[in-house]
Each structure stands twice: as C-alpha cells, then as structure tokens.
C-alpha cells in the first residue's frame, strides 16, 4: 500500500512537473535552450557567495541602475548580506529622494537613508520609455523569479548577444540580436562586456564573471529569505523525519495488538 501511495504521489508530481515545464509563458517561442550554470545558492545547503554579492551590487550600481529600478529592495537590506551600517549609509548617500512636505509645506530632496528603497533611474514608466527608444526596462527586484529558470536565463541573456544578426534575420530599428530572448530581438543593448567594471578584489572582469556576479545579486534581491529558508528547512525536516519515524513505530506497536 505504501508503495502504491508513493506511486500516486509521484504521478501527482509528474503531472505538476509536466505543467511547470510546458507552461512557460514568459519564455515564448524564439529563445534558444538555456544552459545551466552552477550557482552557490543551489541545492539544499546553498548560500549566496558574499563576495559575488558585493561585486554584483557594484555592477548593478554602475551599469544596470542607469536603466533598471530595484523598487522592492531597501538600502537597509544590504545589512543582511554583510554590509556594515556605515557602508550602507555611504552607499545610500549618493542617491537623492524626494521627501516632504516640510513645515512650510514644500517638497524637498535629500540624500537617501538606509530606510529608503533603492532609488530608481526614472520618475515613471513614461520617462523610462522616453529614454529607451520606447522600450521599458523592467524592475529587476524579482527578475530571477519572474522568468522561467530565472538565474540561468538572465545569465544567458546577458552573455547571449550577437553583434550581427544571422543571415535572413532583419532587426527592427534599435533592436539587438540575442540568442535567448523570446523572439531574439531585444531593445536592451548588450549591457555588459569584458572590463565594463573594475573590481577592487582583483576578480577577473570578463563578461562572464560580471554576468555571474549580477545574477547572484539579483537572485538575492528576488529571494532574500533563501538562506534562512533553507537552514530552517533543514531543522524542520530533521525534526519531522524523527517525529514521523516515532509515530510509525508507535503505530506498529499499537496495531500489533490486533494481529
């Protein structure tokens, strides 16, 4: 019976698996097969590589933030990944937020504080489109969860540009050829290339490394709870396995009287 139960549970899983692999709305036709990278946060014991997170923040701040917002993240959140409060203050101070009204009823701008959200590049969607030839650079906070196979997809996207479109493909005005973007034509120009940034820790600044770092950072912005989730999960699982084992023993013992 247990075996049968297991089969049914597995087939339920199989259906769910089918569902999650076939319904890939955000990955419509036209994207190539996405290669898998190895990520430090994969697996049941995975954690975010702290050095990669720091470099990723730098890439975001120096490159992506000129077009993409990160609305769901607060500067204070950086404290959870090893930034000191002074570092956070020093980072935030470079940004300006509108505040107010003050005692005179006037709005004013001030330097950002740790309690503020990451300041985005544009006041609104229209302004963002106006600066990007009509295309809208989406908010990146949840990007790795908002795309199928998110982390691998973004890595592939960032490193998957081609300078010339293949023969027979006519690019629309302002579009770039990308192997992995659905439809292959993306309005975002190649955002990273070798040596786009300078790392203080001496890490290589190859295009691949930069992409790896920003994806690590974005995986954290999308799932800031990941490390806590996995470590709590381990404790809960151990507890449940022991408890269930004991309940099974008890069940056997009680039912033994029947036979």
């Amino acid at each position: 019976m247990i075996k049968k139960t297991l089969t049914s549970v597995l087939s339920a899983l199989a259906i769910a698996g089918v569902v999650s692999t076939v319904s890939t709305p955000s990955q419509a036709a036209g994207g190539a097969e996405i290669p898998s990278q190895s990520w430090s946060w994969n697996g049941p014991f995975g954690t975010f590589d702290r050095a990669a997170l720091r470099r990723g923040l730098q890439v975001y701040a120096e490159v992506c933030s000129s077009c993409h917002s990160l609305d769901l993240v607060h500067y204070r959140d950086l404290g959870n990944i090893g930034f000191s409060i002074d570092e956070i203050k020093a980072f935030a101070i470079d940004y300006e937020v509108e505040d107010g009204p003050d005692d005179e009823g006037e709005m004013f701008t001030r330097e950002a504080k740790p309690a503020d959200r990451f300041v985005g590049p544009f006041a609104n969607e229209q302004a963002a489109r106006a600066s990007n030839g009509g295309a809208y650079p989406p908010d990146l906070s949840l990007m790795t969860k908002a795309r199928k196979n998110g982390a691998n997809y973004i890595y592939a996207l960032l490193t998957g540009y081609e300078e010339e479109a293949p023969d027979g493909v006519v690019l629309m005005d302002g579009m770039n050829y990308n192997h992995y973007f659905p439809g292959n034509q993306i309005a975002m120009a190649p955002p990273v290339d070798d040596d786009y940034v300078e790392y203080a820790d001496g890490t290589s600044t190859s295009k691949e490394q930069i992409a790896h770092d920003i994806v690590t950072f974005l995986a954290w912005t999308a799932e800031p709870e990941l490390e806590e989730r996995k470590s709590l999960g381990l404790k809960v699982m151990i507890f449940l396995v022991v408890l269930t084992g004991m309940l099974y023993g008890l069940k056997r013992k009680i039912w033994a009287k029947l036979h």
Binding site: P25, K145, M237, T244, Y248
Partner: peptide
C-alpha cells in the same frame, strides 16, 4: 507526518514549484 514532510519539502526547498513565473 508523511504529508508534512512532503508539503514542507516544497515550502522550504522548491516553494515556487507549482507556481507560474508570470505571477511575479
């Protein structure tokens, strides 16, 4: 007990398994 292991296994290790990326 068995259900909770199965259930919380998803919650802790694959929380978006049954979900759609588009809903983010």
């Amino acid at each position: 007990g068995v259900l909770l292991i199965f259930f919380l296994g998803f919650v802790f290790y694959a929380p978006n398994f049954f979900g759609e990326p588009d809903n983010y």
